[in-house]
């Protein structure tokens, strides 16, 4: 792999001019790695890629989609979802409305995880759940709520842990069938989310790098998991500012298992276990 020698700036400049997307504040190592992968997948060297990006806007859009990482899982990190279920959601139980934003939601599995959880605790009706991503292709997948069974079969264990078991009382077992939330078709290799979930979710295009809060409301919970790991310190800071402005006081910011708030915004949040709560003053 010769990605290390490549001129990243040449690439980010060309992309910015052709598509408006700005990757200059992405984390260096992952961007190099993604670029190397894109070059390999497209069987191009950097010079050809940059030239193609400059003369073909659609190609530039395609490369933007390939550069971004789109991995996600149903109930990734069950312990986090158990904590959301038993520690965070009860706090909003008496609220009339609960607004939730999944920033960088990719193909939407976390949005559906949240909707399923909300339904289990009887809060779905008063919830407004939004998922955003900069990649319109993944959003289209998210809207349909149809996934490969084979790639997701491992995550049914996660479902069991979060939905059927109670970590605080092992004698409790909720016998919730998968069919309550999705249909599994092993022959077609598909998992299809039930209609009441896909109709409830709202997916919109949003770029964390440059867009403000595009919703006409503030949020009680913002989930942004394993997204800021791809951003450098400066860009992370911008995103924390956006999240801080977009949360109600007392609102929760939920990051990935190995993400933290570094820098000035850490003092505007109180850390509760692995979650960040926006301070009231």
């Amino acid at each position: 792999m010769t990605a290390e020698e490549l001129d990243i700036q040449l690439f980010t400049t060309a992309i910015k001019q052709a598509s408006g997307y700005d990757f200059s504040n992405y984390s260096e190592k992952s961007l190099r790695r993604r670029l190397a992968k894109v070059l390999m997948d497209n069987k191009m060297d950097l010079k050809t890629l940059v030239a193609e990006i400059r003369k073909n806007g659609q190609f530039a859009e395609k490369i933007v989609k390939e550069i971004t990482v789109n991995t996600t899982e149903l109930f990734r990190d069950p312990a986090v979802w158990q904590a959301i279920r038993y520690r965070i959601l009860p706090y909003f139980k008496e609220h009339k409305v609960i607004n939730i934003w999944h920033a960088g939601c990719s193909t939407g599995q976390e949005v559906y995880s949240m909707l399923i959880l909300l339904n289990e605790v009887g809060m779905l009706d008063k919830a407004r759940v939004f998922g955003t991503d900069l990649n319109s292709d993944v959003l289209e997948v998210a809207r349909k709520g149809v996934y490969k069974y084979r790639f997701n079969i491992g995550y049914l264990d996660n479902f069991d842990k979060v939905i059927k078991e109670n970590p605080y009382n092992y004698e409790i077992f909720y016998d919730v069938p998968y069919s309550k939330y999705f249909e599994i078709d092993k022959n077609k290799d598909l998992i299809t989310m039930n209609k009441f979930l896909t109709e409830k979710a709202v997916f919109k295009k949003h770029d964390l790098v440059q867009d403000d809060n595009i919703f006409p409301c503030k949020f009680d919970i913002i989930m942004c998991r394993n997204v800021i790991i791809y951003f450098n310190y400066n860009l992370q800071n911008r995103v924390f500012q956006l999240f801080h402005e977009s949360l109600y006081p007392g609102g929760y910011l939920i990051l990935g298992m190995h993400e933290t708030i570094l820098g000035p915004y850490s003092s505007f949040f109180e850390k509760k276990e692995q979650f960040y709560v926006k301070k009231t003053t």
Binding site: K29, R33, T71
Partner: peptide
């Protein structure tokens, strides 16, 4: 390296994590 993450070593003596494929 944390479970389910790639662990990169960045210039400047820092870790960077990734959930790439």
């Amino acid at each position: 390296a944390p479970a389910n993450y790639h662990m990169y070593i960045e210039l400047g003596n820092r870790f960077a994590l990734s959930t790439e494929e």
